[in-house]
Design a protein around this nucleic acid. Structure first.
Length: 463
RNA sequence: GGCGGCUUAGCCAAGUGGUAAGGCAGAGGUCUGCAAAACCUCUAUGCGGCGGUUCAAAUCCGCCAGCCGCCUCCA
């Protein structure tokens, strides 16, 4: 297998991927905060790491992938007040919603899905060690990390502490902090009614950055191979993770830092805070998981990706062409052997910092071969190759009927609307015989049409 | 203000020194009862602009313009 090259954000250059253990890769990627339905930005992130871990396994590595769930956080508390339910229940509701989305998108289950609230004792000892080492200090019932205690602070962002301080004008000063760049490891409650956990520093909740450091340390020890996440997390989240973890262990936290680009809507970042997000559930009403995956993989993972409905249509049509080339195959009817003619090109592309757009273009090159190959045996071999490589990207090109079922509601409604409109046309032409026939047909399908004035109508299911 | 990134055909998007992948859309044709699918042909002398380095630049350097991200929670 060829060497895999990755763009390491810590060094800002492409490097050959050399895990600590040559046979195994430990990878941790930042997952969602579960306070609402996930949007397609989360889908992009999940798809990116799904494909990267799939390829690492394809390349022969043993992969241990962890993706956290942030299940305690200010936004969750806010939501719990809005909904009038316990914060842990809010977290569970949206964790399950996230899982539902991940299943529909065909994301492989990570090997670990640590949740913040399951690691509180480990967090306490993490904080205690930092206090003992003078990297953290307590103020009232809060604990803060002291940025000035970590000389390399800013190395991921590429700025030193002085430079970072200069650009700090936008942040409201917190009087409790010794340095304005310091961040909370533990946030004490303001009043006893507030939700929280009992800790050595009183009732409160963990700071966001702490969970990733703690869970990484618990799962993988001082140093892991790859740490991933969205590029909006580089600063301060990942910077702070580095500061905490390296202050604790004195060892490098992660060898390689990989970040996926954002999804944009109208050239603007899609984010919950901007309110311009499209949920995964919403988008899957009008497109298939395959098409969404194609849409995402057609752009290199580090580039921004502009969301448009046109692009999703293009993706769906592209997927259709690939599926068409395998339309005579099914699970009971798979060719035995692959040509292997394209596997090298495919691997080369993926080894070059996971160049999925090139990898996809190779799938189309194989499709050309399938569609023009006269020799049936050879054609089968090309089909097998297309199937193998598409599966490495997590695409599902055969047995696709189940996928279309997710679109059923939309198609179903539009067919009914169409029939009703046809019926109105018949009525307007005084062709009542045809109009009645259409109404009878709908009626047999348990759809009752009710005429209103001015060609208006409504329809409903009847038992 | 500080730091980082982007600008390639109608649209999406690869390509980081050797003469522009791939997809979508579009045009013409073959096939077809008609479609669909498939196949064949065509669709950027040019990669934001201006300079420079080089035998050779979309690719390297400089300047300019436009756009975006992070610095507050964010995948």
């Amino acid at each position: 297998m060829k060497k895999i090259t990755v763009f390491n954000n810590l060094t800002k250059q492409k490097e050959i991927l050399e895990p600590l253990d040559p046979t195994t890769i430990n990878i941790y990627t930042c997952g969602p905060t579960v306070y609402d339905d996930s949007h397609i930005g989360h889908a992009r992130s999940a798809l990116t790491w799904d494909v990267i871990t799939r390829f690492l396994r394809y390349a022969g590595y043993k992969v241990h992938w962890a993706r956290n769930i942030t299940d305690i956080d200010d936004k969750i508390l806010k939501k719990s007040i809005e909904l009038g339910i316990n914060p842990s229940k809010v977290a569970r509701i949206y964790t399950y919603s996230f899982y539902e989305d991940m299943i529909r998108l065909g994301i492989d289950w990570p090997d670990y899905e640590p949740q913040a609230t399951q690691y509180l004792p480990q967090m306490y000892s993490f904080i205690e060690s930092l206090i003992k080492n003078k990297h953290a200090y307590t103020v009232d019932n809060d604990v803060y990390f002291s940025v000035s205690s970590f000389k390399e602070y800013g190395k991921l962002k590429g700025q030193n502490i002085q430079e970072l301080e200069k650009g700090f004008g936008r942040i409201e000063p917190n009087e409790k902090k010794k340095n304005k760049l310091d961040f909370a490891l533990w946030k004490g409650v303001k009043s006893n009614n507030e939700y929280g956990f009992d800790s050595p520093w009183g009732k409160g909740r963990p700071g966001w950055h702490l969970e990733c450091s703690t869970m990484n340390y618990s799962l993988f020890g001082p140093t892991l191979d790859i740490h991933g996440g969205g590029d909006d997390l580089i600063f301060p989240h990942h910077e702070n993770e580095i500061a905490q973890s390296e202050s604790l262990t004195g060892r490098p936290f992660a060898k390689y830092w990989l970040h996926n680009g954002m999804i944009l809507v109208n050239e603007e970042k899609m984010a919950k805070s901007l309110g311009n997000f499209i949920t995964i559930k919403e988008v899957l009403k009008s497109t298939t998981p395959n098409a969404l995956r194609f849409f995402v993989l057609n752009t290199h993972y580090r580039m921004p990706l502009n969301y448009t409905s046109e692009a999703l249509v293009a993706a769906q049509n592209g997927i259709n062409r690939l599926q068409e080339a395998l339309s005579d195959l099914s699970d009971n009817n798979l060719p035995e052997s692959s040509t292997g003619n394209f596997a090298k090109e495919f691997t080369d592309a993926m080894c070059n910092d996971f160049n999925t757009p090139i990898a996809l273009s190779i799938l189309f090159n194989i499709t050309d071969k399938i569609n023009t190959e006269k020799n049936p045996k050879q054609k089968k071999a090309y089909q097998k190759e297309l199937l193998n490589l598409s599966q490495t990207l997590g695409l599902n090109l055969i047995n696709t009927q189940a996928e279309y079922a997710t679109l059923k509601d939309k198609s179903f409604s539009s067919i009914i609307e169409m029939l009703i409109n046809w019926r109105i046309e018949c009525k307007n032409n005084k062709d009542y015989k045809s109009a009645d026939k259409i109404r009878d047909i709908l009626s047999k399908c348990n759809i009752e049409v009710k005429d209103l004035t001015d060609n208006k109508y409504k329809w409903q299911f009847k038992a």
